[in-house]
Design a protein around this nucleic acid. Structure first.
Length: 204
DNA sequence: TGCCAGGCCCTCTTTAGGGCCTT
């Protein structure tokens, strides 16, 4: 059974946008949050069996030379499957990371039982006034200190985790809700933007 | 040869189109 007090916030760097086009993961970063505190991290580069193009090298700072020294995707993703266990999962634009997690796990015949939540969907509802809902913009909007490079897997997962906790804190303070369950998060994320405030005000 | 992501969300919507987000 997934533990609702424990979350793994994860982020992939990849060769492109779609596993259906043959794209693979090149780095996975993750942060485990237990009762609001970071208790563990995971970060590994992985060799996807192909060269990445110059856009990806420049976007992520991950070079082909770095990847050639890395363990293959299959090996790294097996370790990552052990890391996430049955915990629930969070990512910024989770549909993207879920596609790559599913694709990489299918290759090695591994499975997970946790459910995904999406910090982008939550932010569109909780931080409606933000200029946009890219991860970097939201981190600045929420006044979260930054001291690293975006577009690396561990740093982005750490920033997503901090943003996640900030949104939970915001919900808790704004609506006086003490216990924010994973189920409530899912409920907020699937409620139309205009109806979120009323829904939360009525939440007991 | 030519194509090439996909889910969410808004609106000049629902018999659709296009921007936002992720690499």
């Amino acid at each position: 059974m997934p533990n609702s007090n424990t979350l793994v916030v994860l982020d992939f760097e990849t060769t492109g946008l779609s596993p259906n086009n043959g794209d693979r993961a090149i780095e996975i970063g993750a942060v485990r949050i237990e009762n609001g505190k970071t208790t563990d991290t995971f970060q590994e580069l992985m060799y996807p069996g192909m060269q990445v193009d110059t856009f990806i090298e420049e976007y992520t700072g991950i070079t082909n030379d770095m990847l050639e020294e890395a363990a293959p995707c299959e090996e790294v993703m097996n370790r990552f499957a052990d890391f996430i266990g049955d915990d629930n999962l969070v990512a910024h634009n989770a549909s993207f990371d879920k596609r790559f997690l599913d694709s990489e796990f299918q290759i090695i015949d591994r499975h997970y039982s946790g459910e995904f939540a999406c910090s982008l969907l939550l932010a569109r509802r909780i931080f409606q006034a933000a200029p946009n809902h890219r991860l970097g913009t939201l981190v600045r909007y929420a006044n979260i200190p930054t001291e690293g490079e975006f577009h690396r897997a561990l740093y982005d997962s750490e920033m997503t985790a901090k943003l996640w906790l900030k949104m939970l804190e915001d919900i808790s303070e704004r609506y006086n809700i003490v216990d924010i369950s994973f189920e409530l998060i899912q409920k907020i994320s699937s409620t139309p933007k205009k109806a979120v405030q009323k829904m939360l005000e009525a939440w007991v």
